[in-house]
């Protein structure tokens, strides 16, 4: 493989029912930064039959959009998606190809990487360009939870990575930007009987998506029991906040999986994140450290969570939380956000 023949940065956009998913704009922000560092073009591939408003992708920083269309690509199916992307990459030859670490990105990118016999790094929290070698540095939390690993793909192209959703801000919108939108019609690929999409069922029971909450109160094992964890839920209710949980807490059954924040759960980026009784393993931090303001409450002054916190209280949650709730209830003229039912647990 002559790696010199590969130029440019490509991101994989996502759509649902023809609407561009916001995670696409986060990728464009990442991609623009990398493309500028390399002095190359940024392209965005997006698969699906009819997609509204592809110019929005240009406004958000792409120089080119490849809309890959075909009857087999209407909804996500790993096989057809992967085959289309392998073909696109072979035609366009980007040196870097990144996708979001969503259920789609985490499924299709390994197929594409295996098809192209190149490397792939999952769940990166940081992407950068090595100044000297001009190659991609992919950084992700690694084994055990307290270290980071930086990985490169030196000999093969493209250099591929998935990045945590919400680990970057959406790209700035600029309507004066121009770019090229081209349609790749791989329509000859027939709808295959090997994989058949049957239905999408929205999850009615799925409680609030905490990804969208402005404030999140999250609890960890320091709360000792399920009853202890209720303090976190109570504070969340008072603040109209979403409830988050560490992996330990979900494993213990005090909270359900949709509340799990961290590498194996959700990544959130709220205006305010209050971590209660959470020690702050890297895996958890990976899911919340881009929050605007972080408050940590923990008994252990050495807890790692304090290192990412803007404000920390060293103390027992069972003392601090009742006091805090008391003060919030009594504070005259307080300006609590509207606590909508949606945001409660």
């Amino acid at each position: 493989m002559d790696i010199q023949n590969y130029k440019g940065v490509m991101v994989l956009g996502e759509q649902k029912d023809g609407h561009i998913r916001p995670v696409t704009f986060e990728l464009l922000n990442r991609g623009r930064d990398l493309a500028d560092k390399l002095g190359v073009e940024l392209s965005c591939s997006i698969l699906g039959n009819e997609i509204e408003d592809l110019t929005e992708i240009i406004y958000r920083g792409a120089d080119k959009v490849f809309h890959v269309a075909g009857p087999a690509l209407a909804g996500f199916l790993p096989g057809p998606y992967a085959r289309a992307l392998v073909r696109l990459v072979q035609e366009e030859r980007p040196e870097i190809f990144i996708a979001a670490a969503t259920t789609t990105g985490r499924t299709v990118m390994p197929l594409v990487a295996a098809g192209l016999k190149t490397g792939l790094t999952a769940d990166c929290t940081l992407l950068d360009i090595d100044d000297k070698e001009k190659i991609l540095l992919q950084t992700r939390p690694a084994i055990g939870g307290n270290i980071m690993a930086t990985i490169k793909t030196p000999f093969t192209r493209p250099q591929m990575a998935t990045v945590r959703p919400r680990s970057a801000r959406p790209a700035h919108r600029d309507e004066s930007r121009t770019g090229l939108i081209s349609v790749k019609n791989y329509g000859d690929s027939p709808v295959s009987a090997v994989e058949r999409f049957l239905a999408y069922v929205p999850d009615a029971t799925q409680e609030v998506s905490i990804e969208d909450a402005d404030i999140i109160v999250a609890g960890g094992k320091g709360l000792k029991t399920r009853d202890g964890f209720k303090l976190v839920e109570e504070l969340a209710r008072l603040l109209g906040a979403g409830v988050g949980a560490s992996r330990d807490v979900v494993d213990l059954g005090w909270a359900s999986y949709p509340h799990q924040i961290g590498l194996s759960g959700k990544t959130v980026s709220p205006k305010l994140y209050i971590a209660v009784g959470i020690s702050g393993k890297v895996q958890h931090l990976a899911g919340m450290q881009t929050s605007e303001t972080i408050v940590a409450i923990n008994r252990d002054p050495e807890a790692q969570i304090f290192q990412v916190a803007d404000f920390g209280i060293v103390g027992d949650a069972f003392e601090v939380l009742p006091e805090l709730m008391g003060a919030l209830k009594n504070a005259p003229g307080r300006r609590l956000r509207e606590g909508s039912e949606d945001n409660a647990l």
Partner: peptide, 23 residues
């Protein structure tokens, strides 16, 4: 293996923290 680990490091977590002790 197409990928190589370049380095492993403890994350630098950088926020200046106002720390208070509960009393």
């Amino acid at each position: 293996s197409p990928t190589r680990v370049v380095k492993i490091f403890s994350p630098k977590l950088s926020r200046s923290t106002l720390l208070h002790r509960q009393d």
